[in-house]
Design a binder for these strands. Structure first.
Length: 933
RNA sequence: GGGGCAGUGGUGGAAUGGUAUACACGGCGGUCUUAAAAACCGCUUCCUUCGGGAUUGUGGGUUCGAAUCCCACCUGCCUCACCA
């Protein structure tokens, strides 16, 4: 043992001790309240990065705090181990995905241990283990049997260069993220889950303490809208076109129809003379990339089919077109076009010379709109015109039946059998199949007659064959590996195994259930464990999962509930006196998102700017980026220096310590040698520019190196201290010094300042007061996930103790109490140094040897109370004077003191107070009196 | 284009109706040293005629009192996006 703080010696020693003693093992104990703390599991990409530390160590601190508060805490960890990067490694470097994955997991386990987190490693779950994906397959099978999973046709992302389908998350801005090649949309038969089955229930967040933005994003993603379906007959045929509209009130203004190019009826209704044009257009639409189809301000395109439909409300014969601005995936894939009331339809009508009929008289406008005078569609409120039966009703701008005109239109449609009220969702069914090897197999068999059957339970899991070969084509080896491909159906006839595997989001949609009992083999989870631990109390992770993982998780949980998978757990709950009502409706009750740690700031461009001065400000007509101060020509007249900040065209330039303002004028010449082509002011980079970490940018912060240099406690504390956790921000390598000093000071105080006398009672009381004020701040901060203020309060306590020690008079008992409480308050944040000092100061007894087995200090408001506080005297809301008073001063007394306060009287200036407001000194705040004159 | 979040010293940030700038980084001055680093002590929102005045992106409003609540705008980030 050394006498200076040496984290490199302390930390591995305690980590080994905790593991040996099973300190963080969590077991069902119905005599204690439970707390299931969960943090998102990592993908085993090879190395733990600083983002993992930022996500996990504060979550660990919160879980540790809950444990000290008396909860039985479960805080598990695992790996989301299936996925494409492993398969890429196989294709590119000829390493088997399993080998790559397990090597990474092994490496990351070690790195995770270096955090000193209280993970219960006996609960570890790895999604690519057959014992895990057996149950992923089992869920698929149960969902299939319940009609929640089905095989159907859908538009998917197809990469022509790779000759394979790609997942949505692999397509970024219309390009395949791996090769950068464009992706097109293609109809293919795939496996889906009935996502919309729970759409309405998933819109209900009333039981959830989740961040507001996540709830809003999910609501928008589900995209519920209210309207009507209307049936149009195709003229001279028996065919019908069904459309969905949110504005059935504008039906009288529907002057043409548009079908998606992929709509099933297109082929059938196209007239011979239009056939060629239609086929060409459909061909082109199918071959166009996502980029081309969604490009902004793209001109409307489309082709007339030659066919006509009959508008059911006025029997008008209206042309049927096809156009790619109508999506086959939304609504019915066909629209009634109302150019008067919809900008897209308006643009289309203008381009192709189609008829426009005004149907809403805008509010507050006298003149009647005419088609010829319109420059844009009118979407606002008004009175219905040219609208037959609903003429004169009011469209108030509200959605659905909230608008009288829409309500009237729906009633009319239903009364006349033309259509009915309808709810539509933006949400599409969840496409779960992938044409890949490294994923959970789909336990289905294609029989020779084309029918499907499930793999029997006793044959689960369908295991991934290990001895397969990967070819550069990227095609899944499952599709050509005969031993896997060839199966036998239930009748004993030869059949073909399903070669698609499941989306990895499927694996991560139930992992917190597997943590309950990763070894259990009778079911996905042990109902005894589930009854005690479920639901998850606190879930932490990145907000980027808002509409994917977090929505899948909710759907999965509801499907499991409805299939009775929690029934047994509910029964056990009841036996233990816990009411299961509502506990299985949602998987995670409370959610918090951490922000992102970004790369360090980089220096701004060094520029030379010339132009015309107006005072100190330079209006630059020429800005040139140079390498640095050495490139300033002798006798240069303009502004030179580093750009510290840029707001549009105004630069703040650091000119050897002096801040100069440079406004880059319209049409100025900007020269940036590193950026080819014509440069502009927006390309000038400034000091505060921040960015994601990446190897190519050379701004990656390596946690292993930081731990080697400073120790895990310092890295943990710095990550919690340097940012607002829910925001994140750019990494600042200098700030860590404050945390280093803090822990060194704490070590110093604990090891060298123990008094031996009983001390001065007044000082002892002051110490006790500061300690209890710290309990209150740290506790309320940790409750709110406000880690930075918890550490600030602990640093302030350090400052106070240092001052008391310097001033002298602390007694032995007061000092030991202060140490005991301070170490316990710090222990969730910095578990190693506090454990070491806890032992060195002799606080450890044999029964509860660890600081991490101690109870959280109990806050005592009486002990935290000040003897006297500052009364703030305000005149007209501005602080003018002060007086020392008792904290529980009465209003009369305070008013009296305030009115006679000499500083205040100068501002009252002999005037008669109009009003006097007394603000009682609430917790931590001074009493105030505001005198209004 | 729709939706959301944010804007506070040189920097990270604190304060969610009651003394704006807690806690830290950086900076400045000092002590110690041949010197530097470290350590320690002090100062550090801006202006000031030293009385005070101004200040939380901008402009309005509510209130005895606004960083905080309301309205409009500006800027940045996130997200969805020809969604009928």
């Amino acid at each position: 043992m050394t006498d200076t703080y040496n984290p490199q010696e302390i930390e591995p020693r305690w980590q080994a001790t905790w593991e040996r003693d099973g300190l963080y093992r969590s077991r069902v104990d119905w005599s204690k309240p439970k707390h299931y703390a969960l943090t998102m599991l990592p993908y085993p990409s090879g190395d733990l990065h600083i983002g993992h530390w930022f996500a996990m160590t504060p979550s660990d601190a919160r879980a540790r705090y809950m444990r000290m508060k008396g909860y039985n805490v479960l805080f598990p960890m695992g790996f989301d181990a299936f996925g494409l990067p492993a398969e890429n490694a196989a294709i590119q470097r000829n390493i088997h995905p399993a080998k790559w994955t397990y090597a990474n997991i092994e490496r990351m386990r070690g790195q995770l241990r270096s955090m000193g987190a209280m993970f219960d490693w006996e609960r570890e779950a790895v999604s690519c283990e057959p014992s895990y994906y057996k149950w992923t397959e089992w869920f698929f099978k149960k969902f299939y049997e319940a009609g929640l999973a089905y095989r159907g046709e859908a538009m998917v992302n197809w990469s022509p260069t790779l000759q394979t389908v790609l997942a949505n998350e692999q397509v970024i801005d219309g390009h395949d993220e791996r090769t950068g090649q464009p992706v097109i949309q293609k109809m293919m038969t795939q496996w889906f889950f009935r996502y919309t089955r729970y759409a309405d229930e998933m819109l209900d967040f009333s039981e959830l303490d989740w961040p507001e933005p996540i709830k809003i994003m999910q609501t928008n993603w589900i995209g519920r809208s209210e309207g009507a379906q209307v049936v149009f007959k195709v003229d001279d045929t028996a065919d019908e076109i069904r459309v969905y509209t949110t504005r059935p009130d504008t039906l009288w203004g529907a002057t043409f129809m548009v079908l998606a190019p992929e709509h099933k009826l297109v082929d059938k209704i196209t007239t011979p003379d239009q056939r060629e044009a239609i086929d060409a257009y459909r061909q082109q639409a199918a071959g166009s990339t996502e980029i081309e189809r969604t490009a902004e301000d793209r001109d409307k395109t489309g082709v007339f089919t030659g066919a006509y439909a009959i508008n059911p409300v006025n029997d008008e014969r209206i042309p049927i077109w096809i156009a790619d601005y109508v999506m086959v995936t939304y609504g019915t894939g066909a629209i009634m076009a109302v150019p008067y009331g919809d900008q897209r339809d308006f643009d289309f009508a203008r381009k192709f010379g189609l008829k426009i009929v005004p149907v809403v008289q805008p509010e507050g406008v006298e003149e009647v709109p005419t088609a010829d005078n319109l420059t844009a569609a009118y979407t606002g409120a008004g009175v219905m015109i040219n609208s037959g039966a609903i003429n004169g009703t009011v469209h108030n701008g509200g959605k659905g039946r909230k608008s009288p005109a829409i309500a009237a239109a729906i009633d009319y449609l239903q009364a006349n059998g033309i259509g009915q009220e309808s709810v539509n969702y933006r949400l599409r069914d969840w496409l779960v199949s992938r044409q890949r090897y490294w994923g959970s197999p789909i336990p289905m068999i294609h029989r020779a007659d084309g029918t499907l059957e499930t793999v029997p339970d006793d044959q689960l899991p369908v295991e991934l064959p290990r001895d397969v070969e990967f070819t550069p084509s990227g095609r899944s080896p499952l599709t050509y590996y005969e031993p896997f491909l060839n199966a036998t159906d239930s009748a004993g006839d030869p059949a073909r195994r399903e070669t698609d595997t499941m989306d990895t989001f499927m694996c991560s949609s139930w992992y917190w259930y597997r943590y309950l009992s990763p070894q259990y083999d009778a079911a996905p989870f042990d109902p005894e464990e589930a009854a005690y631990w479920l639901p998850v109390d606190v879930y932490t992770g990145g907000a980027e999962h808002a509409t994917m993982h977090l929505l899948y998780a909710r759907w999965f949980n509801k499907a499991m509930r409805d299939l009775g998978m929690f029934d047994e757990a509910a029964q056990i709950m009841r036996q233990n006196g816990r009411d299961p009502e509502g506990l299985f409706d949602e998987p995670m009750m409370l959610l918090r998102n951490q922000g992102q740690v970004l790369g360090a700031e980089r220096p701004g461009d060094y520029i030379l700017a010339t132009g015309r001065y107006e005072g100190d400000k330079l209006f630059a007509d020429h800005v040139r980026v140079v390498d640095g101060p050495n490139d300033v020509p002798a006798g240069f007249e303009g502004v030179f220096g580093e750009i510290r900040k840029r707001t549009e065209n105004v630069l703040q330039v650091d000119m050897t310590g002096v801040r100069r303002i440079v406004e880059v004028v319209e049409g100025a010449t900007v020269e940036i040698p590193d950026i080819e082509g014509k440069n502009d002011v927006n390309q000038l980079r400034h000091h505060l520019e921040i960015m994601r970490m990446s190897k190519s940018r050379g701004n990656v912060v390596n946690p292993d190196e930081l731990v080697g240099q400073y120790g895990a406690d310092t890295v943990r504390a710095y990550l919690m201290f340097a940012f607002d956790w829910e925001k994140g921000g750019p990494w600042d390598p200098n700030g860590i010094k404050g945390v280093v000093n803090w822990l060194n000071d704490v070590w110093q105080i604990a090891m060298t300042t123990a008094p031996t006398t009983s001390g001065d009672p007044n000082v002892n009381r002051d110490v006790e007061r500061k300690v209890h004020q710290a309990i209150d701040s740290v506790q309320s901060s940790l409750e709110r996930f406000s880690f930075n203020t918890a550490i600030a309060a602990l640093m302030a306590l350090r400052n106070n103790l240092q001052a008391f020690i310097k001033g002298g008079g602390i007694g032995e008992a007061a000092w030991r109490d202060a140490m005991s409480i301070m170490l316990r308050l710090m222990s969730p944040i910095t578990p190693h140094i506090t454990e070491e000092l806890w032992h060195r100061l002799g606080f450890a007894d044999s029964a509860h040897g660890s600081v991490h087995q101690q109870a959280w200090p109990v806050y005592d408001a009486d002990k935290a109370r000040e003897d006297s506080v500052t009364l703030v005297v305000m005149v007209n809301g501005k602080p003018r004077g002060e007086a020392q008073v008792a904290p529980d001063i009465s209003e009369e007394e305070a008013t009296q003191i305030a009115l006679t306060n000499s500083d205040a009287q100068r501002f009252i200036n002999g005037n008669q107070p109009k009003k006097i407001i007394f603000i009682r000194g609430r917790k931590g705040q001074e009493p105030k009196v505001n005198i209004v004159v």
